[in-house]
Amino acid sequence: MTSPLLACRGLCYRYGALQAIADLDFDLMAGEMHALIGPNGAGKTTFVNLLSGELPPDAGKILLDGKDITRAPMHERVAAGIVRSYQIPQLFPRLSALENVALALPARRRHRYVFWRKASTDLASLEEAEAWLDRVGLAEQVGLPAAMLSHGERRRLELAMTLASGARLLLLDEPLAGLSAEESAQMANLIAALKEARTVLFIEHDLDHVFRLAHRITVLVEGRCLASGDPDSIRAHREVRRAYLGEWA
């Protein structure tokens, strides 16, 4: 039995009277592609916010490689290798696609206080950023400001930034939301290509994509883990079928 890359024990978070995450235990193995599903308001995004450090949990522990990161600020988690994406792409609207990705590179993080050298002299970084844009199919849009991109292009730019960060653990919050069928398939392929190379936890509503992409699926309902297992066992799970899959059937 190998130990998990990321582990949560007894995680709790509440918004006023609403218990968004209730005593949640969760394990994420290195290299796995893990889907988080559940009805609206199940606490999926809250969970991602707790893992990325945007919200402090009320109780419980988050361990990365066995190291406690429960109270670590966001930038320390990024340095440790956790990076998230957003349900609504969070871009720098007036900066070019290239500059958006360049800001995500680890080199820029390390050189954040460098004021004596122009950023444009770091050619390696610019090439790297271009390579990431190429990888998500945005090679043509390198110089366009993010605000000028279509919704589908913004989603891919968001993914390129997440990838460029060099993180080993990616938290993707609904990477397919709002995309056309064709764009969704394209994005799903991009994510599928990450298998083995990175550990991914993603939120998704479209179960076809979930069953195709994921090694393991966790079903979240009212902040609790209803079921967790490989796609076949989740498909067969009676409670999941009744409480959850029925909604789409």
Binding site: S52, R77, Y86, Q90, L91, F92, L103, R109, M161
Partner: peptide, 11 residues
């Protein structure tokens, strides 16, 4: 431009 994003990128 986007403070939240910068934090999420590890700054």
């Amino acid at each position: 431009e986007n403070e939240r994003r910068m934090a999420a990128l590890g700054f």
